[in-house]
């Protein structure tokens, strides 16, 4: 039992990156836009968050740099990169009416390319590698909860031993849940994703809702990439290590049945599954097969949801489809 709690506590950092990725894509998909470019967006978030923090420190000087400011700037840098990607996706799919799947995949190619290029360019122009000083590194993975709470046996580390980004992610999830279920705008957004024709007839501006949801969603996903680089990867740009995080986030959106609150425990569960092979060793069961467990679980969820035809667990009815008013 102790191992399980230790595992979950350790998974928190990795889970945080997934949580942001998932929340962003959930918001995007609620509008009916399926942006398969999350992988590319998180790559861009990863590098531009790092570059933003690095530049901030270079400008104000290492001594004067403030951990809190560095975090805010890294978030803004990543968010901006993701928002631009979301804008581009919306422009091509909503305004220019291109196929969403294909555009999303092109976004993945483009985003990973831009991120790798930017990373290598920074490395070449700065010499050595791009990073931040140690005291900023510490502030990025600081555990903010009071020590006595962390010392609670078993659950202390799980609930209170996480870096601040984890709690920020939970805050975003709760706010998104409230927005989608309790506000008029949230209702409109869901209507756009479920039945754009109906929403259009009711006078809701489909284009506006899809654009905004995709831009904000892209930004939130990109923060996940930044969190990954600044915590799990230790503030250093390692291209290969981010590979697959974005795709896992797309999977997680399904696993969480398009509900922001589910993303909290869902990402912790997936994060745990991803590192479980290090903690819970099952004799004779190979680790590589262990690692595909999250994907198998997602497929099972997908199948069961479709078999039961459970209305609560379905994707937005118009997910992945563009809306053409003249083809109503």
């Amino acid at each position: 039992m102790n191992t399980v709690f230790a595992l979950i506590a350790a998974a928190g950092t990795y889970a945080t990156a997934l949580m942001f990725g998932t929340l962003g894509e959930t918001l995007t998909e609620k509008s009916g836009n399926m942006n398969l470019g999350v992988e590319g967006i998180m790559y861009m978030g990863g590098i531009f968050g790092l570059i933003a923090a690095n530049r901030y420190e270079a400008i104000v000087g290492e001594a004067a740099s403030n951990g809190f400011m560095a975090i805010v700037i890294a978030i803004l840098g990543a968010f901006a990169a993701g928002a631009v990607a979301g804008l581009l996706f919306s422009f091509i799919t909503v305004t220019l009416r291109a196929n969403q799947n294909v555009t999303g995949l092109a976004m993945t190619t483009f985003g990973t390319g831009v991120a790798k290029f930017a990373g290598e360019h920074m490395r070449n122009s700065l010499g050595g590698y791009v990073s931040v000083s140690n005291h900023l590194k510490d502030s990025f993975s600081m555990k903010i909860m009071p020590k006595f709470l962390q010392d609670i046996p078993l659950i202390g580390k799980v609930l209170f031993g996480q870096p601040h980004f984890f709690y920020l992610g939970i805050l975003v999830a709760v706010l998104m849940h409230l927005f989608l279920t309790k506000t008029k705008k949230g209702l409109y957004l869901r209507a756009v994703g479920e039945s754009p024709a109906t929403a259009d007839a009711a006078g809701i501006n489909i284009t506006k809702y899809r654009y905004i949801a995709t831009i904000v969603g892209g930004g939130i996903s990109a923060i996940g990439g930044m969190v990954y680089t600044m915590t799990t990867a230790g503030c250093v740009w390692i291209e290969a290590s981010l590979a697959g995080v974005g795709w896992l986030s797309v999977a997680l959106v399904i696993f969480c049945t398009w509900k922001p609150l589910n993303a909290i425990w869902g990402s912790v569960l997936f994060g745990s599954l991803m590192i479980m092979y290090l903690w819970i060793i099952v004799p004779f069961f190979p680790t590589e097969l262990y690692k595909i467990l999250p994907y198998v679980v997602t497929i099972v969820v997908l199948i069961i949801a479709s078999m039961r035809n459970n209305k609560e667990k379905q994707p937005p009815a118009n997910l992945g489809l563009n809306y053409f008013r003249e083809e109503r």
């Binding site: 590319g40 092109a106 976004m107 190619t109 483009f110 390319g113 831009v114 790798k116 290029f117």
Partner: peptide, 8 residues
């Protein structure tokens, strides 16, 4: 990686 950018 410029290949990926140009392809994208």
């Amino acid at each position: 990686s410029v290949a990926e950018i140009v392809s994208g």
